[in-house]
Nucleic acid binder design. Structure first.
Lengths: 199, 199
DNA sequence: TGACTAATCGAGGCAGCCTCAGGTTAACTG
DNA sequence: CAGTTAACCTGAGGCTGCCTCGATTAGTCA
């Protein structure tokens, strides 16, 4: 298993009021993003957190840094989940299970997939480090499934993430439920899995 | 083949100067959308067309109506292309070919897929009529391929359009080239096609 | 307690959206 | 051709949201 560095992008502020406001902003941001997508009004978020707009910008100089902070935990869970399933499940099952979780996380709120897809290859974006770690996680699972002969050998990790984010985008724009998402992933798996002997 | 109504959403203005400005706006809009995506500045478009902002709003009361007018031709081509391939090609080949064209059109500019995906099921959107016609076209091709036993019988048209728009979204956000797009569609087809006898 | 400086505040400049009251002009009519 | 009319055009102005920055406040530490 390849090394998955744990990125520390921005240490939290030190002063008590600073820490308090930072947390309040994060809570407000998560709510606002869930409701209005990644382009929710920053001034509303600041107001909701009981803080002036300048304070928001002090903690999060760009929208991207706020999104990153609001979604970091979820991505961390995703990365550790990859290690977990790799240990517990058969290769293709592990990959499938992880893909399910990835799609759900990517579509946490409208606009997230776009940001993550961007960050995956664009260093310099706040989310890049976490995305790179996640890329490694996915690639490891893919490689294992390929070694086991369960996934077509010519599929690259980038292609896998293309399929994954496409699925997440569809989920987020159609507000698909559990069943539709499950079905969609099944179709994708069908396309990348090596067929076992037919009837 | 089901009926494909040709919608006439908004007749063009009658007076000469009105028609002239309408056309100029459309040209400017296509350029701007291609360059900046569907959220290009409307004031820039008006200025580029040599017209005041109020004139733009007179012809296109909402951004959606402008997008619709700017992309209607392409959708019409897509619909007639479906009839064409249905006549000329074997069912699965026809479906595949049409999907290729659909993905390319859907990703004409950044933001289009989202609008089309929305319009497909939301009556009351300007693009809905064209989208519905296109839905019919795709469904016809799908049904033919299923009758020929070449595509899994349990795939619905809505699922097909989910896959299609997912592919288009990936193409538009990664600015994928011809090869990547081709590959992506191949993977999708692999997932929905009935496997011919294996080795 | 006083000094230091992190942290906060919010007015203000800017961009883009959209409306509407008033001015202009193409097209038609006698 | 002059008169009439409705279609058309204009752009200032109100609004929302982004982002900055100088003045102010308040934790922290010696």
């Amino acid at each position: 298993m390849a090394e998955t560095p744990v990125p520390q992008i921005a240490q939290r502020p030190k002063r008590a009021d600073g820490r308090r406001n930072y947390d309040a902003l994060l809570v407000a941001a998560r709510t606002a993003f869930a409701e209005h997508g990644s382009d929710a009004s920053l001034e509303d978020i600041a107001h909701e957190a009981g803080v002036a707009i300048g304070t928001l910008y002090r903690h999060f100089p760009t929208r991207a840094t706020l999104v990153e902070a609001a979604t970091r935990d979820g991505l961390e869970v995703l990365v550790s989940h990859a290690r977990d399933v790799a240990d517990r499940l058969a290769p293709l099952t592990a990959l499938t299970d992880w893909m399910r979780h990835a799609v759900v996380h990517f579509s946490t709120f409208r606009g997230l997939v776009g940001i993550l897809a961007q960050s995956m290859y664009d260093e310099g974006t706040p989310s890049h480090a976490m995305c790179a770690a996640m890329h490694t996680s996915g690639a490891d699972l893919l490689r294992a499934a390929q070694r086991a002969g369960e996934v077509r050998a010519d599929l690259t990790a980038d292609e896998l993430f293309g399929l994954l984010s496409g699925a997440a985008w569809v989920r987020e724009t159609t507000r698909a439920g559990k069943d539709e998402t499950e079905r969609f992933i099944e179709l994708v798996i069908e396309g990348i899995a090596v067929r076992t002997a037919g009837p």
